[in-house]
Design a protein around this nucleic acid. Structure first.
Length: 99
DNA sequence: CTCTTGACGCCGG
DNA sequence: TCCGGCGCCAAGA
């Protein structure tokens, strides 16, 4: 994978509005390139350069280690969360498919 | 060349 | 709701 894919992923993540999110799989789908795992690799390596908390798993969760820090951003951005507060409410926060 | 490893996703039990 | 299994695919060892 060239630096090109990495840049496309980071650019798309940069365009996600405050309070909204995209899943790893959705990003791969929008870019029509790679797959969820490739997007995951990019985020693991260079995600620190962008709003990484706006990229979550398909079910709205993130690894526990990242959830701790991510929650602060969700609170600030007013990101809709599911009951327990440990996962984003995808039906309301998913970008490009709902209001 | 063959495992093994992931910031993954989907389905079945 | 909570596993476990399988598909996926690039990178490392």
């Amino acid at each position: 994978m060239g630096p090109e894919f990495t840049e496309r992923v980071l650019d798309l993540v940069d365009s996600i509005p405050r309070g909204r999110v995209l899943s790893f799989g959705m990003i791969a789908e929008v870019l029509q390139e790679g797959g969820p795992r490739q997007v995951g690799r990019v985020m693991a390596l260079e995600g620190g350069a962008v709003a990484w908390w706006r990229v979550v798993r398909a079910d709205g969760s993130l690894p526990s280690s990242l959830m701790v820090g991510a929650q602060e951003h969700y609170a600030i951005e007013g990101t809709p969360m599911r009951g327990n507060g440990w996962a984003v409410d995808m039906t309301r926060a998913r970008w490009l498919l709902e209001d």
